[in-house]
Write a protein that binds this DNA or RNA. Structure first.
Length: 221
DNA sequence: TTCCTGGATC
DNA sequence: GATCCGGGAA
């Protein structure tokens, strides 16, 4: 099986997803920060709280005290840290781009990635999510789901760090923004529903292709 | 109890 | 690489 065959299987299963929930660029960026290590349902609660208080733009976040933001995003678990991360991004956008996403995304992806990674609270996965889904940049997004799935399916046999995994994948697929968006979306969806930490192997489309697969007749994998 | 679309710090 | 952060649903 190739990576594109993996992608096609998931796309056949779920249809095109394209994915990232959020009606505005700011909402996508906010979601990318708030979703760190937290269930997306909790992020939705926090985003609704921000929306009800007209805090879903970085103009408002920039001039709002961090304590007020923290109180609204409590469902995202690390709310004090994440409130500061939102403030840090707002400061960055204000100081470097006059609070304009158009100006920010006018930069090339590689330059912008380096800038985003200098913001305290923005790591590689969050930066890449912002670049791909908020900025339509050709930047593949990897994550713990991707590493787990590719490990179980036998694509990778040794641990790769984040950047190595991104390189491993992008070498084997067409360089296309919409493909990057949908492929990550499919992997996340499948990993959250089926190939979970405790996988639901029954009826899995990959069946015997999975090296982590434990059949009911195999007492101990 | 476990698990959830991480990142910073030491 | 180990630990902190520290809510909510199943």
């Amino acid at each position: 099986m190739t990576l594109m065959q993996l992608y096609q299987s998931l796309r056949d299963l779920y249809g095109y997803r394209g994915w990232w929930p959020g009606e505005t660029t700011a909402e996508i960026v906010i979601g990318a920060i708030l979703t760190q290590n937290v269930n997306w349902k909790n992020v939705e609660k926090a985003i609704n709280n921000l929306k009800k208080n007209d805090l879903l733009t970085f103009e408002e976040i920039h001039r709002s005290p961090v304590e007020r933001i923290a109180q609204l995003i409590i469902p995202t678990r690390y709310y004090n840290q994440k409130a500061m991360k939102l403030k840090n991004f707002a400061d960055f956008l204000h100081d470097k781009y006059d609070l304009s996403f158009d100006q920010m995304f006018a930069r090339d992806g590689a330059t912008l990635r380096k800038q985003l990674l200098q913001i305290k609270g923005i790591g590689r996965e969050t930066a890449d999510s912002i670049l791909l889904y908020a900025g339509d940049k050709l930047q593949f997004v990897s994550d713990a789901y991707t590493a787990r799935l590719l490990g179980r399916l036998g694509f990778i046999t040794e641990k790769l760090d984040y950047d190595e995994l991104v390189a491993f994948i992008t070498q084997q697929i067409p360089q296309d923004v919409d493909l990057y968006k949908d492929m990550h979306a499919q992997i996340v969806h499948f990993s959250a529903l089926v190939c979970k930490a405790k996988p639901l192997c029954e009826g899995c489309v990959f069946g015997a292709n999975c090296v982590g697969f434990i059949s009911s007749t195999d007492a101990h994998g």
